[in-house]
């Protein structure tokens, strides 16, 4: 279907990659998605652990807050970040004076992606943690393992497939994100322009005029699509592995 992007062989792809800052856009997109997956992999797991194992008043409330990104439209998430960190706002202005650039900078893109993908990791890890028998942890404690050792040797290995699946989902989602990024990034070619935003620009006649069009957009899309598809396959593999292991236990 997308192969209409390759209408005249691989020429389109090469042309597209060599112009319009496409190469850098894809590089930036991958980089940001990677960082998002790692950071939310850690914090998402932490939050899931707290939801399941650390009782405290207001846990239900925190759980609802973590689901906010599911409810908030991604474009609105981007608008929120601009409102808070924009150069004319109190917080943004203060940060700007101290040399921290968020809006129109990669840091803003990262924040937007972290916002959008946090619940994906939490909700992927949480059910596995609920299923995990506390008896295993207790056994480890009785055998003399400290809290950290227990987590590292008992809890983490059991959660690894779920964390990986959640992080991969966050990665895939980040690769394709448009709404949350479009305002925050400023879309400066070769600097803060991500692949999905580039695709919309290629399709918009006012940006590049007659030079670019659906062909070029399709070429960049195909590459992005390929990444996503591979990710879905890996995720499916990882999660079915974890299911199998759970079934064996």
């Amino acid at each position: 279907m997308l192969q209409s992007g390759f209408g005249n062989g691989l020429g389109n792809l090469q042309d597209a990659l060599n112009s319009f800052g496409a190469q850098n856009a894809i590089k930036l997109t991958l980089m940001m998605a990677f960082l998002t997956a790692i950071i939310n992999g850690v914090f998402g797991t932490l939050l899931a652990y707290i939801f399941v194992r650390v009782p405290f008043p207001g846990r239900d409330l925190l759980s609802t807050v973590v689901d906010l990104p599911f409810a908030v439209p991604t474009l609105v998430a981007g608008v929120m970040l601009v409102a808070l960190y924009g150069p004319h706002s109190t917080v943004g202005g203060w940060l700007e004076r101290h040399g921290i650039h968020i809006i129109f900078a990669p840091l803003g893109i990262l924040l937007a992606l972290l916002f959008v993908t946090l619940p994906l990791v939490v909700r992927s890890v949480q059910p596995v943690l609920i299923e995990l028998d506390t008896a295993e942890e207790e056994a480890a404690r009785v055998l003399g393992a400290g809290g950290l050792t227990t987590f590292r040797k008992v809890v983490f290995p059991a959660l690894r497939p779920a964390i990986t699946a959640g992080a991969l989902l966050a990665f895939a989602r980040s690769l394709g994100e448009f709404g949350a990024i479009v305002f925050v990034s400023g879309n400066i070619p070769n600097k803060t322009l991500t692949a999905p935003v580039l695709i919309t620009q290629l399709l918009n006649p006012t940006t590049f005029g007659a030079v670019a069009g659906p062909g070029e957009a399709a070429a960049v899309s195909s590459l992005l699509f390929l990444f996503s598809f591979v990710l879905v396959l890996i995720t499916e593999r990882v999660s079915s592995h974890s299911l199998q292991r759970a079934a064996e236990l």
């Binding site: 394709g176 995720t235 499916e236």
Partner: peptide, 21 residues
Amino acid sequence: SALVDLPLAVSPVIVGLMAVL
């Protein structure tokens, strides 16, 4: 089951492009 999840992983921008094509 993988196909069902595909829209979660594929960029909406690409979905739009597919529709245009």
